[in-house]
Design a protein around this nucleic acid. Sequence first.
DNA 1: ATGGTTTGTGCAACCGGTTGCAATCCTCGA
DNA 2: TCGAGGATTGCAACCGGTTGCACAAACCAT
Lengths: 338, 338
Amino acid sequence: MGLKTVKTIADIARLTGVSKSTVSRALNDSPLISEETKERIRAVAKEHNFQINVSASRLSLQQSRTIAFAVHAQKNCGGFSLNDLFLLELLGAISSTLSTLHYDLLVANINPHDPAWPHEYLDTGRVDGFILLTSTRKKFHIGTLVKMKAPFIVWGTPLPNYSYCSVNSDNFNGGRLATEHLLQKGRRRIAFMGGPADEGETEQRYAGYVAALKEAGQEVAPTLVRYGDWTSDSGMERMQQLLEASPDLDAVFANSDLMAAGAMNVLHARGRRVPQDVAVVGYDDLSIARVNSPPLTTISQNLPLVGKLLAQNLIQYVETGVVTNVTIPAHLIVRESA
Amino acid sequence: MGLKTVKTIADIARLTGVSKSTVSRALNDSPLISEETKERIRAVAKEHNFQINVSASRLSLQQSRTIAFAVHAQKNCGGFSLNDLFLLELLGAISSTLSTLHYDLLVANINPHDPAWPHEYLDTGRVDGFILLTSTRKKFHIGTLVKMKAPFIVWGTPLPNYSYCSVNSDNFNGGRLATEHLLQKGRRRIAFMGGPADEGETEQRYAGYVAALKEAGQEVAPTLVRYGDWTSDSGMERMQQLLEASPDLDAVFANSDLMAAGAMNVLHARGRRVPQDVAVVGYDDLSIARVNSPPLTTISQNLPLVGKLLAQNLIQYVETGVVTNVTIPAHLIVRESA
DNA sequence: ATGGTTTGTGCAACCGGTTGCAATCCTCGA
DNA sequence: TCGAGGATTGCAACCGGTTGCACAAACCAT
């Protein structure tokens, strides 16, 4: 006990009276080695609680068994991207899935304006692939990654004309579910508070919103539609604009929980009760949704599943080259805000 | 352009007409090499945008230049620890500080009940040290880490009788600032909603609460004190208990923003207005604090600074063995809830 | 001209696993 | 009794940097 003198497979080999190769094979459960020799070697290894040196192993194997989660710092002192909570919840699922698959998770702090960032991770052998959700300059990054044949997977609607792995949620249905729920609650002046207008997610949710309205025989009113950038600040601004443009609105479908929270803040400040006067539906089902006042009705994207798929499918691609594009269902979570 | 054929320092050596050693030294800016040779080698390296193989380098150097951020999955499907948001905000700062120092950040998903987890990261040469904020079984982990002489730093009040690096916030002052603010607002029935009663943070904040009340000539009422576990759920439960025990309370000092959010929820549900009827002060200044309704008055711990110090001081310890214990100031952020 | 420094570079071993190929031992059938 | 073929294991090269030490060239003073 104490300082270990047994550190390498050569030590184990000496103790067991076999060669390095045999130890290496035994620990990797190679069929070449007899069961009884394996047992003996494993026993000695356990006894000295031997841990393999991953640097050496990675060098030999020419792979890192490490995945990078790409994030980019924001202007405001070392923070994360605007996704914040969203990102964290995903990170948890990704992390545990990867560890199940014996991969490590690296947090890669990238500079979104430097197209060469993947080199620093890939060419150095640090990681075997990337997971990204970066909404900032998404197309740009995807383009460069495809060009340099880097293995990666992205959260979000896949871009046309590119082939790469992705995990996407059923945004059209999400938009429809939210809108249908509001209609069913008797709302007739339902505002759409979208994410950035040019992002696929926003477009699809808007399409779902429109479809639900049409089905209910309603018109789409331009004064009830505004686009923001997912943040609570933009939620506040858009809510003010919506109230000015349409003082009679009785519901809001916000494209993110953060925007919904901002919107509710403004509504409270203006003396509108939620949900009595204005019903609010969010999107994402972040952990804060339950904590809002009132608790937020929202569209759940099953983040644990998303994280798991991101990890699994990326690794599948790294190891076999299979490109997957999956779409996961959206669910309505009814709480008190609508 | 395209497939790189220049991958190793041996390739660079060949192209430059020197030996591997010279290339290695040149790229590491060794004083042994003449300035002009360095220039030539660097030029060739840039031209072929050569990237060093970190596995090989780490194997040779016997160090990983990687730090593990220890987190543990929760019962609920792949989630993170209860700190959630808190953790994320810290992570951003840690990540960018580490990358400045040329260290990588690994997310280590640990099993809080397995005392051997550090071996898997340390003895394998995966990482050079750990950062932990784990409140779950903190003493246990710290004990085992100290015992195995693992390099680590922890967020929180250092345990007595152990020597290790830590970054702590001025909880006493935080507790006092919060309480003084409420007193100054004319509140006289101020409840204390603490974290777990046996944690240093909670004790110190409580001491600050008591000190402020004493200075104001007030008594400490046991019916106004309850302890939870930092989560919003516990915030809701404790709030209910407090309202039952002391229906006349006019303020709550919650030890976390999450608890404060839960408390506000209950207050709204019971028809108490915040801040008119009951003022609420939180703790942490998470990004959600601004988004709450009403925006939460809280104690800020300057998380970016905390993250930076955690990273810097751990590396300093790893490289030089210097043990630091720093305390950072607490600030009151006044918003609308109190 | 000669011996002692610097200064700059190369050789080769080493970090700790992995793996193609050769070598050894057994078993079994003819 | 002898060789073919299968089961095990060892040898040695290799992955790609790093570094102690030897060595050669240039510089200096005597």
